[in-house]
Design a binder for these strands. Structure first.
Lengths: 235, 235
DNA sequence: TTCGTAGAACGAACAGCGTTCGACAGGAGG
DNA sequence: CCTCCTGTCGAACGCTGTTCGTTCTACGAA
């Protein structure tokens, strides 16, 4: 999001149009700053500077920083497409949808953090995503009074996984320290006597990178198997 | 955490002992401020003021604000006791442990947020908790290479649920706005034409308070049922 | 065409944050 | 008694989100 080229001299007579800022421009700028430099760089001053204006100008189009966050999340989540629910394949469809949502949330680091902090998804894009997930769940045989709970827990887990995964990614700066910590934990565990934290010591070799995509996929499988066990009909 | 009473006059001769600040005092003060006024009140300045000193004095005992957060989380989590693993009752034990951990994380609002932001649990108290969970999982019949993933996903879900639940609690100030939002969503859904977000509209009545404890317990049941389905032996 | 006005744009200012740093002081050891 | 060393202190730095009074443009009415 570079500043636009200055107008050529022969256009200097035309007054620059007053109305340059829109909510959409602000959200797009914020998203590009986020994906380029991480969450800490997304400040009102930074976005305003990127748009060649002052920080106060943004507040005519955006109520709050929290509202800006919601709009960013909405714009990012709008790209996931929800499939037509197929009662024969609800398990595959559910897994695919969760993987896709997690992919989008992880792809731009920082979006998952916003998703986690936004307590209730109010914006249209997220409502659409939630509706698609409920659509699949509703043709799975799970009793109606459990579907809300199932959707809640799936959305929560997808968001939480994406958040944790995004902490391991590059421009946040925490990534290096995280890996260093992981090594230190390994050494610390090995230095302990055998009767302390025995299970962690036994499992130490199996935890290479914290929360891995494999773990997430396994969690989805466990979820869906458990859901199928709670459904009356099990296709 | 009030300031201590001034010394009586007959003790004025005694010089005030030099060493008043300890890491433990700081952590305790921070926890009491947190539980009294919510996460936003936990600032270095506020804690220092509570201890009648300046903000810079804390940095002799605590490296960072992040380290202080970790120490707070550790102190809060130390109260959960892990049971002796019993292969006959691993399902009940697992559920009880998760409920207990979630209870502690939810009890002091703001602790769950810290737990979510702390990428890897490094402190002893949390390692003990994780070890206890792994101990139960290891006698469940789940293959060893899945146990790490299972522990990861359980811990992640417990933390994420506690975080979301703590957003609905009182002194954070977001609670009122959250409930208002929820009502607005209901109205918004009813105002939509029938072919938009049909599943959300159908489920609208079943989502009273967002993430409820019932949903969490249901999620635990689903988890454990799925884990049992992935175990070789199913006691 | 001219004028009035609504409202966007602006940037300075405010209160607060985490953290750093140099100066200070008091107990311990020679 | 003097010296050192370490915990303490408060001012200061650079940053944050947000507010506010002013400026100025674009548009509708006369």
């Amino acid at each position: 999001m570079n500043a636009p080229l200055p107008p050529p001299p022969w256009r200097r007579a035309t007054r620059t149009p007053r109305r340059q800022l829109t909510t959409e421009t602000i959200v797009d700028t914020a998203l590009s700053v986020l994906s380029a430099e991480g969450p800490d760089a997304v400040t009102m001053r930074r976005i305003a500077h990127e748009l060649d204006t002052g920080p106060g100008s943004l507040y005519a189009h955006v109520q709050d920083k929290r509202e800006l966050h919601e709009l960013m999340l909405d714009a990012a989540m709008r790209v996931v497409e929800t499939p037509e629910p197929d009662p024969q394949n609800w398990r595959t469809q559910l897994k695919q949808l969760c993987l896709e949502q997690a992919r989008v949330l992880t792809e731009t680091p920082g979006i998952a953090q916003i998703a986690m902090e936004t307590l209730i998804p109010t914006t249209p894009g997220i409502l659409v995503a939630m509706d698609g997930m409920l659509g699949i769940l509703r043709c799975s045989g799970i009793p109606d009074d459990r579907i809300a709970a199932a959707g809640d827990m799936l959305a929560l887990h997808v968001t939480a996984y994406a958040y944790e995964a995004s902490l391991w990614q590059s421009p946040s700066g925490q990534s290096d320290e995280a890996h260093r910590r992981l090594g230190q934990i390994g050494d610390y565990l090995q230095s302990l006597p055998a009767d302390q934290l025995p299970n962690l010591k036994a499992m130490n070799h199996a935890m290479p990178h914290g929360t891995e995509p494999d773990h997430f996929e396994f969690a989805l499988d466990v979820f869906i198997a458990g859901l199928a066990a709670h459904a009356d009909v099990r296709p």
